[in-house]
Simulated scan of single mutants.
Amino acid sequence: MSVPLKRKHGWLAHYRELLGAWRNRNSPDGEDAIQDVAVELLERGIVDLDEPRSYLARGVSNGVIDRHRRRGIIPFRPLDDLPEHEHPTVADGQSAFYTSELLTALMAALQELPPACQRVYLQHRLEGWTHAEIAADMGISRSMVEKHMARALLHIGERLKHHAPTD
């Protein structure tokens, strides 16, 4: 009598399982973290893992934690979440002047950054590249892309804070 062989599933089978679980939790951070792990595996050309379920689960867990930490470092509130009276507004006659002044200040702040930080900021914010795409283009790790982006955002935020509306 032969013992049936246990079929080994690739990481993609577990990817779908995890994605379904995070969707049931209605967690976009979890879904994004799963996507990030999958992209990393694909970029590295990794097909087989000894423990694919464990590897993916740990990677997703770490990704969700990283996203949570980044939110703590760089506070962000979407414009739609702000009450109407907190929306940034400028009197119509001053809009062009204010926009020009803000753009000049942004360009000056960007020029103060190292070239790698400038490039990461521009590719991500203006061209819409993902961190993985920027990392591949620049030949650096995603972690380094995230560090460049964090540095750029903190620097620009500091330089442009006097342009923010006051209460």
Rank of each mutant, 00 (worst) to 15 (best):
W11I: 02
W11C: 02
L12E: 12
A13N: 10
A13V: 12
A13D: 09
H14L: 09
Y15Q: 05
Y15K: 12
Y15D: 06
R16K: 13
E17T: 13
E17Y: 07
E17P: 00
E17I: 05
L18W: 08
L19E: 12
L19K: 11
L19V: 15
L19T: 14
G20I: 01
A21Y: 07
A21K: 02
R23V: 07
R23G: 04
R23S: 03
R25Q: 14
R25F: 09
N26E: 09
P28Q: 14
P28D: 13
P28K: 09
D29V: 06
G30W: 08
G30T: 10
G30F: 11
G30C: 07
E31F: 02
D32L: 15
D32T: 15
A33M: 02
A33Q: 00
A33N: 01
I34S: 03
Q35T: 11
Q35D: 06
V37F: 03
A38I: 10
A38K: 13
V39N: 11
V39C: 03
V39K: 12
E40Y: 01
E40P: 00
E40M: 05
E40D: 11
E40W: 03
L41S: 03
L41K: 03
L41G: 00
L41N: 02
L41F: 05
L42K: 14
L42P: 01
